[in-house]
Design a binder for these strands. Structure first.
Length: 287
DNA sequence: AATCAAAGCAACCGCCATTGG
DNA sequence: TCCAATGGCGGTTGCTTTGAT
């Protein structure tokens, strides 16, 4: 493809479908072959980025919880601006998402926090003041990331308000349980989504997620930090993190076994909707 | 209703590391 | 060992949306 032919700018639903179709067939990787084999007028990098940051199954956008923010702050202080490494501890987040969230929300909060700290420490003893301030700065006010998230706050039950972004988000959602876990990162997360009503996908699918994650901690982590992490509730709803105490690798392959036992419900990895459903659905939801 | 500024985020760019011939 | 191709990452840009006036 000639350089001049390479398209830039936002991805269209049609391009997304082509990309997802190809990856579903051939798996992620071999990015170079995608433009050549699909006719997509995008460079290989762009394809990879679109997949890893947006279309990949199991991605959650917006709505960073206070726990996630705490973890990001902690990891940022330990690892620096290693967003890919930080994101690997947040299985549903991409490095781009974490980076954006840090730059747009948390930097400001940190400034507020530090400003408050300096004025507080001048007037009172530190100790509890720090916790008080932290919760003030991160859990309230602009800490309400719900309000700023265009994705998460969409009233999905009202299709007329849907934007394109929600379409790709739902592509990811629909593909959950299909994709093999990403191997280019340390993230080893498998989300098992059950659609309570799998026959219709135009309305909000009712889904329950359970995440099975193995988190490789940096050596700099001391046991207290691990306990801290264990106590964190990363995901909303019924999602849980399962920690592997043994050295055996979890089974991320085709047939899933959720730690804690099977409940006999149908799983999406057995019955994820065929792509044609996605295509027609997306076509209806034209922007 | 129109305009402007600020905020948010998807996507691009450039550099670096890795891999394979 | 060298070199080109490829993939990954962090920084940055610029478009879109939102809120204020």
């Amino acid at each position: 493809m000639a350089k001049a032919d390479i398209k830039k700018g936002p991805w269209t639903p049609e391009e997304d479908i082509i990309l997802v179709s190809y990856i579903q067939k051939h798996g992620p990787g071999k990015w170079r072959s995608i433009p050549a084999n699909t006719g997509l007028m995008r460079c290989s990098k762009s394809c990879r980025l679109r997949w890893t940051n947006y279309l990949r199954p199991g991605i959650k956008h917006g709505n960073f919880t206070p726990q996630e923010e705490e973890l990001i702050i902690h990891l940022q202080s330990v690892l620096g601006n290693k967003w890919a490494a930080i994101a690997s501890y947040l299985p549903q987040r991409t490095d781009n998402d974490v980076k954006n969230h840090w730059n747009t929300h948390m930097k400001k909060k940190m400034k507020r926090y530090q400003a408050a700290i300096s004025s507080y420490s001048a007037s009172s003893s530190a100790g509890n003041a720090c916790h008080e301030l932290a919760s003030t700065c991160f859990n309230t006010g602009s800490g309400n990331s719900n309000a700023s998230s265009t994705h998460s706050t969409l009233p999905i039950s009202n299709p007329s308000t849907l934007k394109y972004a929600s379409s790709t988000e739902n592509i990811s959602r629909l593909l959950e349980g299909w994709g093999r876990p990403s191997q280019d990162q340390d993230v080893r997360c498998q989300s098992i989504t059950r659609f309570a009503n799998s026959s219709t996908i135009s309305s909000t699918p009712v889904c329950f997620m359970e995440n099975q994650s193995k988190v490789d901690l940096p050596e700099s982590y001391h046991p207290a930090s691990i306990e801290e992490l264990k106590s964190l509730q990363f995901f909303e709803g019924s999602s849980r993190i399962y920690w592997e105490e043994s050295s055996s690798e979890p089974n991320f392959g085709g047939s899933q076994s959720v730690p804690g036992g099977s409940d006999g419900q149908n799983r999406l990895d057995d019955q994820h909707p065929p792509l044609t459903m996605l295509e027609s659905w997306l076509a209806d939801e034209d922007v």
